[in-house]
């Protein structure tokens, strides 16, 4: 199996106690972990582009007509549902709003990741938490359960992975306002033990993982 870079936009440690996502908590206890730091404004597109370009990228809207990002070129990875454009970029592409059901996105993304992972590195995103929690947090723990279940399915098949969120949960209905702290769980340790993980470092770590 090839390495996997999986982003779960808006996944937050602050909901781990409340929602008790069993598999994520098991990963938390058994893998390398860290905190992703990304201060406001945190738009999905600029946050993801910082990972894919391995340097800080600013912006407050989705990109139009993007060239193949550096990390994808250099690792020859397949991109799946990456929210740098709207609709999302890659093999699977959905509108970045609440029109797509959680189940529809989760099952299509998981299916494609599992198909592709056998032959090439995968860079994928599951956007459901970010898309839905900007509107309402009523079903948060139900969404966490669905995300937790699919992560179990995917990560159990991957030998090497970086699972991260580029920022925490939405703090308002604006697309660029989230908690500053995201999740980092991986088979590779964070760059500095006593420091947060920066977005561009995630791209560098994945490139190194593919090069091994």
């Amino acid at each position: 199996m090839k390495p996997l870079l999986l982003g779960i936009d808006a996944l937050s440690y602050t909901s781990f106690m409340k929602c008790n996502p069993r598999f994520l908590l098991a990963l938390f206890s058994s893998t390398f972990r860290g905190v992703v730091l990304n201060k406001k404004p945190q738009h999905p597109a600029s946050s993801w582009m910082s990972v894919l370009e391995m340097q800080e990228v600013k912006g407050d809207s989705f990109f139009k007509d993007v060239e193949t990002p550096t990390l994808i070129k250099e690792t020859k990875a397949v991109a799946i549902n990456i929210p740098i454009t709207n609709p999302t970029y890659g093999e699977v592409s959905f509108e970045y709003n609440d029109s797509v059901s959680p189940q529809e996105e989760i099952s299509k993304v998981a299916e494609t990741i599992l198909e592709e992972l056998e032959s090439r590195p995968v860079i994928a995103s599951i956007t459901v938490l970010d898309r839905m929690l900007h509107k309402s947090k009523e079903n948060k723990c139900e969404l966490y359960k669905q995300v937790d279940d699919v992560i179990r399915k995917i990560v159990n098949k991957a030998d090497d992975f970086i699972l991260f969120s580029p920022y925490g949960e939405p703090t308002s209905d604006r697309p660029d306002e989230h908690e500053d702290y995201g999740v980092y769980l991986s088979t590779v340790p964070r760059p500095n033990e006593h420091d947060t993980v920066k977005l561009h470092e995630i791209g560098v770590l994945f490139r190194r993982l593919v090069g091994q």
Partner: peptide
């Protein structure tokens, strides 16, 4: 707490 400490972020809402 510290920013890099994941369990600290878990505890904060409690």
């Amino acid at each position: 707490w510290a920013e890099w400490c994941a369990p600290c972020i878990i505890l904060a809402p409690i």
